[in-house]
Every structure is written in C-alpha cells, then in structure tokens.
Amino acid sequence: MRLGYAQRRRLKRIGFWALAAVIVIYTVFPFYWSIVTSMKTGSALFSVDLLPPDPVWENYHLIFAEQPFARNIGNSVLVAVAVVALSLALAVTAAFAFGRLRFRGRVGLLLAILAVSMFPQVAVLSGMFTLVRWLGLFNSLFALILTYLIFTLPFTVWVLTTFMRELPKELEEAAIVDGAKPLTILTRIYLPLLVPALATTGLLAFIVAWNEFLFALTFTLSNEMRTVPVAIALMTGGSQYELPWGQIMAASVVVTLPLIALVLVCQRMIVSGLTAGAVKG
C-alpha cells in the first residue's frame, strides 16, 4: 500500500514524538525513581511502585537528624562557589591574554593548559595528596578548592579564549582611543559581552565541583569536612549490613534541586546575540 503525502507526514511526526518520549523517559526516569524511593521506608523500598503507596517525608528528616548533612551541603556550596569564582576570575584574565595579545609561546601554553586535564584523576591523586599534606591543607575545604581548579581551569580558559577572540578588535581600539585602561576595557567592555560565556562555563564548573567524588573522599577525613557526594556515599544505616536506600535517595534529591535552580537562573543569561549592533555583521 502506498501512503499519501499527508499520511507519510503524520507517520514521521509520530516517529519523532515517540523518539522524543523515549529520550525523555531515559533521562528523567532515574531521577523520578529516586524521588519515589526517597518517600518509602522499610520493606516498601523493595517493591516496584510507580507512585509510593503511602508517601512519607521521614527520610528527608532523618538525613539532617542523623548526620551533619546540612553542614555537608554548606561545604559543597562553599567549595563550588569558590571554585567558580576563582576559575572565572583566573580564566577571564588568562583569556584576555590568550585571545587579545600576541606573545611568544601562546599556542604552546594553551595546549599545556589543555594537557593538564588529560591525565586520569587517579594518576594525579597520589601526587596531589602529597602536595595537599605538604601545604597543610589535609582535611580542609581549601584542599578541594585548590585541586578542583585542575578540572575547571582548562575548559574555562579554552571556552573564554574562544569567545574573547570572537569579540571585535575594533571595540578594544575604540575603547583605547576613548582613553580606557586595559583593566577598564576588560571589566567595562569585554566582561558584559562575555556574560553568556561566563554563565555557561561557570555553570559547568559548578557542576564539576558539586559532583566531584574522588578528591573529596581522599582529601577529607572527618564527617564535618565532607562534601555532599562523599557524605551520601558513606551514609550508613542502623547496622553495618544495611544500606539506607531511602535516605540516600532523599539526600540525592535534596542536592540535585540547587543544581536545577542554578541551571534555570543561568539559562536566562545564556542568550546569544549580545554583541549584535557592535559592528556591521
């Protein structure tokens, strides 16, 4: 049977939406499952329900009562915010140099920065541990802030350099003729134009710092210094042989919410076309 044009179009549309539905379910289902699980206790945890039969908030209460989870969240916020602030500040100034100035070894240096991120985390772990001990930062949040820059700086520098290079050179020259000093040019002319890039890279850096596990596990010791991923992983139940799945899921839901909020806020800043009108394009 040959299908008419309208029928083929309808089939194509059905196919498209079916594919979209599969992708949405695939990505959202795990999160949905943790929400459902976080509202169950006891043996209900091991039954398969799409909706919790009788939802309870006990797990959400317990994670804050039985361990310093609020403190862990605070640690994570502190570390992530500090990492974002530091890497953006360093990356913007580095990108200004890489994108705007010509100097010997520019490409080599850029590649070196990228190379830093190529080593597997485990490979740098022991060396980094020695460094952290030597600096006296063991079991301190500063150790995490410092070491997370290894992950965040390469991509923040690279992305911002690319953006910086695409800003029209005439803008800088116009500002120079207007009497602006380099720092003024960076802060008053370039920074406002880089907001979308800053929002994107800042968000990525935040997520990296928020979710990092291995360094956080290695460089902290006490419950009070742990960040959220480690705290969740090391949660223990009533006995050694019991994993408190309900609480783990509740904790996961709690720490994902700030990320979602952050993405929604940043999304409004990630708008294109900020440079429209600068030069005739």
Binding site: P168, E170, L171, E173, A174, I189, A278, V279
Partner: peptide, 13 residues
C-alpha cells in the same frame, strides 16, 4: 584625537 571606525565599533551593551 577621535576616531570613527569602518565597523562603527559601538559598545553593544
């Protein structure tokens, strides 16, 4: 001096 650029180079923001 004051300069007028070919591309205008207005500060877009």
């Amino acid at each position: 001096i004051a300069m007028v650029f070919q591309s205008y180079a207005l500060y877009p923001h």
